[in-house]
Design a protein around this nucleic acid. Structure first.
Lengths: 211, 211
DNA sequence: ACCTGAACACCGTTCAAGT
DNA sequence: ACCTGAACACCGTTCAAGT
């Protein structure tokens, strides 16, 4: 006996749950069917196939990302605030970052943010191709950083890691004379701080470099 | 009748070929066995299972990356040269970037480059934690950029893309008054140029910001 | 229009058995 | 020490058949 009518949205919701909890690999057509209490093949009627189901999931959350409101007084501050907000949003959806990335939709997801960046860069006095370059440089830096950061979190222990490399004595290295440097590299990086530092440095340089 | 003794290296070579040509998804234990002219199960004896086979492949190419020799007169130039070289090396192994990234080994792959960066940053006069931050900022920027760039290449056509967004009229946008900016954003980005520009801007800012 | 089970062609992996 | 085929438990997808 058939259950209450299955809808496309119901399928997407259940699929999103599976992905959020255990990652995209855990999203199996058969498991999904079991979760929904239907035959595997019913899902195909609603979403086509697994590939387009994942497409729909990604599409959905790209929409959810919404617009970004910059905060701060100077354009530089406001750009940094956009960067921070973007990083936070992305980090809240780790599996989806990966999926969006794998599907090559990172660009599209960043269009709202790009608009905000354009506004701020313009306000800072940059014009034309130089402004476009600045926007893209910042955009690439943010996305790239988050991608790496996610990667780091997933594989926290590596060997030989920075700890082993910079913890010991390495002859002929500048670190040999610079104990503080060696110690800093032996410590795990503080992503929050490194992110702010990087974005600020890049923005400062890009905005100053006009004329 | 069994063929000439199968070796672990033989298995790895054949596997690497499959991955290089058609990506990791194309690496199937059964296809690999067919390629080698053995039973599927023989492969298991030599490499354990598919997972550790991929591990071995990644490990192998991480080794192949080797050391980086900086070029140029000033530390800034030499850092930029390291960045360029790294980007080239990574772009030559697109499928492997993805695999290394997915396995969280990006860090380890970059340790030789990190050494070179430490040397240059030190030569530029940075010390201690500040030097460590600079090294990591540059390192993150390079890796992040290459990850995004690879992503762009794989999905060249997106809709709505930057073209559609910035090609038309968008009321209330700074781009409305700045035709050159809108036109620049409607054009596809030149990754080569954008990369050089970003790294130079970041390095300049990081090296200047001492004291 | 929506759902079903059977069937097909794939997977990775295990295992007892061979030499 | 190395290789084998059979078997198991999974996949995604198609299709003819139901209501």
């Amino acid at each position: 006996m058939p259950r209450t009518a299955l809808t496309r949205d119901e399928v997407l919701d259940a699929a999103a749950d599976l992905v959020k909890q255990h990652g995209p690999d855990a999203l199996t057509m058969r498991k999904l069917a079991a979760e929904l209490g239907t035959a595997v093949t019913s899902i195909y009627w609603h979403v086509g196939n697994r590939e387009s189901l994942l497409d729909a999931l990604v599409e959905r959350t790209v929409q959810e990302m919404g617009a970004i409101r910059p905060r701060g007084r100077t354009p530089a501050d406001r750009i940094v605030s956009v960067a921070r907000r973007l990083r936070r949003e992305l980090r809240a959806r780790p599996h989806l970052i990966a999926m969006v990335h794998e599907r090559g939709l990172t660009e599209r997801m960043f269009l709202p943010a790009q608009r905000a960046l354009v506004h701020e860069v313009h306000a800072a006095g940059l014009r034309g191709a130089r402004a476009a370059d600045a926007v893209r440089a910042v955009q690439f830096q943010i996305v790239g950083f988050v991608l790496i950061e996610r990667n780091r979190e997933r594989a926290p222990v590596q060997s030989p890691g920075e700890q082993e490399l910079w913890g010991g004595h390495t002859a002929g290295d500048p670190a040999e004379e610079d104990v503080a440097l060696a110690r800093a590299l032996a410590r795990p990086a503080d992503p929050e701080k490194l992110f702010a530092l990087s974005v600020e440095a890049l923005v400062k340089s890009l905005l100053a470099d006009r004329g």
